[in-house]
């Protein structure tokens, strides 16, 4: 009897949490079902300056020469190899570097990348850049792994 009562109480708490949680986030669920967060849980309304791009767009922007690539990986990884011309802004301490050292106008196209599509530092750095009012930030989701696999230009020296 006591176990039944315990299970009943657990059920009540769980149901309440589901009902409140889902009712409080109905608009978020609608956005999700619409496909707004297909690549990252980043709200387009909160971060309108951030877009997600694939390898082809990244390559086009690289060839165009007007965009700046930002490598959000740790310095050791950057020094082992990075996209040619990329600037290293390790996410740890990235806020300080963006504030003190990023010499680009706010309208510059910035392409942020990290190891590959499973790392998170590029998205986190993109959020920092958006907070510093950069207007055109692209997260290259395939990152370093996809760039290397595609045989695109690399550098093994410090470009910063």
């Amino acid at each position: 009897m006591r176990i039944k009562e315990l299970i009943f109480h657990v059920g009540i708490i769980l149901c309440l949490s589901f009902v409140i949680g889902i009712s409080a986030n109905l608009s978020l669920i609608k956005q999700y079902r619409k496909g707004d967060f297909s690549q990252s849980f980043l709200s387009p309304e909160d971060f309108p300056s951030i877009q997600f791009i694939g390898i082809f767009e990244a390559e086009d922007l690289f060839v165009g020469g007007n965009a700046v690539f930002l490598d959000s990986r740790a310095e050791e990884k950057y020094l082992e190899g990075h996209i040619l011309g990329a600037v290293n802004i390790p996410f740890e301490g990235g806020e300080r570097i963006v504030e003190e050292q990023l010499p680009f106008p706010r309208e510059t196209t910035l392409i942020v990348y990290c190891d590959g599509n499973e790392c998170q530092s590029s998205v986190l750095l993109a959020k920092v850049l958006a907070e510093f009012r950069f207007e055109d930030i692209r997260v290259f989701f395939g990152g370093w792994a996809e760039w290397v696999a595609a045989g695109l230009p690399l550098s093994e020296r410090n470009d910063t």
Binding site: I13, L14, L16, S17, F18, I20, G21, I22, A24, N25, L28, I29, Y32, F37, F41
Partner: peptide, 21 residues
Amino acid sequence: RDLSLLAAIVLPWLEILCGVL
């Protein structure tokens, strides 16, 4: 991703409810 969002929506309320109780 579906489960991540569901957990992110429900878990905080579960924590608060249980904390208050």
